[in-house]
Simulated assay, not measured.
Amino acid sequence: MDKLIAILKRQEDYARRSLKYVTVDYRMPTVAMLGQNDSEVFLQGDDAQAFVEQVEVMYEQTQTLSKDQCEFIVAYDYLDILY
């Protein structure tokens, strides 16, 4: 599990350097991501729900990562859309 956590933390670091922010509204759900080049991805409906579910599963299974960290790790998969 330590190797997996290390890989996830590298993905988080890369996502944090590539994104200005990731904002998740867990009630709606909606997700907004803004890249360093000011391009934006906005998720709602099923896409946002899938994002939220991935964050929650990762948070529960790792038990060492914060929700904030998990949000950036899941956002890593969307970087190709922004650049």
Rank of each mutant, 00 (worst) to 15 (best):
F72M: 05
A48M: 02
N37S: 06
Y26S: 07
F42P: 01
K9C: 00
Y26D: 06
D13I: 05
T23H: 15
Y21F: 15
T30L: 01
V55R: 00
S18P: 04
D77L: 08
D38L: 08
S18M: 12
F51H: 03
R10Y: 07
Q63I: 01
K9G: 00
R27I: 12
G45R: 02
Q11C: 11
D13N: 12
T64S: 10
L79W: 05
L19I: 07
L34R: 14
L19W: 12
E40Q: 13
L79G: 01
D13W: 10
V24Q: 04
V74L: 03
S39Q: 14
T62R: 04
M33W: 03
D77T: 09
V22A: 03
Y78T: 03
L19A: 05
F72W: 10
D47H: 08
N37C: 00
V74R: 04
R17A: 07
V52E: 02
T23E: 15
K9D: 03
A6H: 08
S39K: 15
F51T: 03
K20N: 12
L79N: 05
V52R: 07
V22D: 05
S66G: 06
V22W: 09
F72L: 10
K67C: 07
D77M: 06
Y76G: 02
A48E: 01
V22E: 06
V31M: 02
Y76N: 11
R10F: 06
T64K: 08
V22K: 06
L34D: 01
V31F: 02
D68V: 09
D38T: 02
V24R: 07
P29K: 00
R27Y: 10
A6D: 14
Q44W: 06
L34I: 05
F51I: 04
Q54I: 00
Q54T: 02
Q61L: 13
I7K: 13
D68M: 06
I7V: 11
N37K: 08
Q49R: 15
F72R: 09
D13Q: 14
Y78G: 03
Y14L: 13
T23V: 14
L19Y: 09
G35H: 00
Q69E: 15
D46V: 10
A75G: 07
V31I: 04
D46R: 14
I7M: 10
K20A: 05
V41I: 11
V24T: 08
A32S: 13
V74N: 03
